[in-house]
């Protein structure tokens, strides 16, 4: 027996009438089963569940929208991005040094934790190596800072809050951006970078000042 073609079955599935197909179908269980299987498969297609969008999708979309603060970051590519990352990483590292000094300026052995990190001279010969070195030393410093914080808590010494640490970090980014702009004052990326850092720093300042009393407010230029 010659069975119905896939084209004919498809037409029947869509409710079209095909000459002679009805007669064949009524007497052929193979084609009946095939048509039913196609109908079932179409139902399964329609019942496929909705999918969740990737988590980072909105960030990608936002970066391309006018007025986005992420746009300038998304536009960074190549050496310029590496240089800015180096500036940022170096700034974070320096912030840590400053923070450590600030914490221990009143006590004996005040630079013990800092000295452990800052003792050796940089040895990197290329930008990539320098980035790796900064990151490595930053990780070392993080460990040293955690140790300092632990000891400070044990001895009852003051420990800066996370917000204060962020504030110092943001101020260092502002300064690093200004330094970079002194070399390339018209660079739009660097200007955007400074703008974003100032905006974040001021937001953090407002947040801190809301928590503190009027006489204790932090002021920053």
């Amino acid at each position: 027996m010659v069975h119905l073609t896939e084209e004919t079955l498809s037409e029947l599935l869509d409710g079209e009438s095909v000459a002679g197909a009805g007669e064949h179908l009524s007497s052929c269980s193979v084609c009946q089963d095939e048509l039913e299987a196609l109908r079932q498969l179409r139902a399964e297609l329609r019942e496929l569940p909705d999918l969740g969008a990737p988590e980072d999708l909105w960030m990608r979309i936002e970066a391309g929208l006018p007025g986005s603060r992420r746009g300038w970051r998304a536009g960074l590519r190549g050496p310029r991005l590496v240089a800015l990352q180096a500036v940022a990483a170096a700034a974070v590292f320096v912030i840590g040094l400053g923070l450590g000094r600030a914490m221990w300026s009143d006590g004996p052995g005040s630079e013990a934790g800092v000295g452990a990190v800052a003792a050796s001279r940089p040895s990197a010969m290329t930008l990539t190596e320098a980035m790796a070195e900064v990151q490595r030393r930053g990780a070392d410093y993080d460990e040293a800072l955690q140790n300092l914080e632990r000891l400070a808590r044990q001895e009852g010494a003051p420990v800066p809050s996370l917000a204060q640490q962020r504030l110092v970090g943001l101020q260092m980014l502002v300064e690093a951006s200004r330094t970079a702009l002194s070399v390339e004052p018209a660079d739009p990326v660097l200007n955007s970078y400074l703008f974003a850092a100032v905006e974040e720093r001021d937001a953090m300042l407002r947040e801190l000042n809301e928590v503190q009393g009027p006489g204790e407010q932090v002021l920053w230029r």
């Binding site: 498809s10 037409e11 498969l41």
Partner: peptide
């Protein structure tokens, strides 16, 4: 379009 549809259904099946 019709031809593609019938082939797609058959292949999916």
């Amino acid at each position: 379009s019709k031809s593609q549809l019938s082939k797609a259904r058959a292949r999916l099946r």
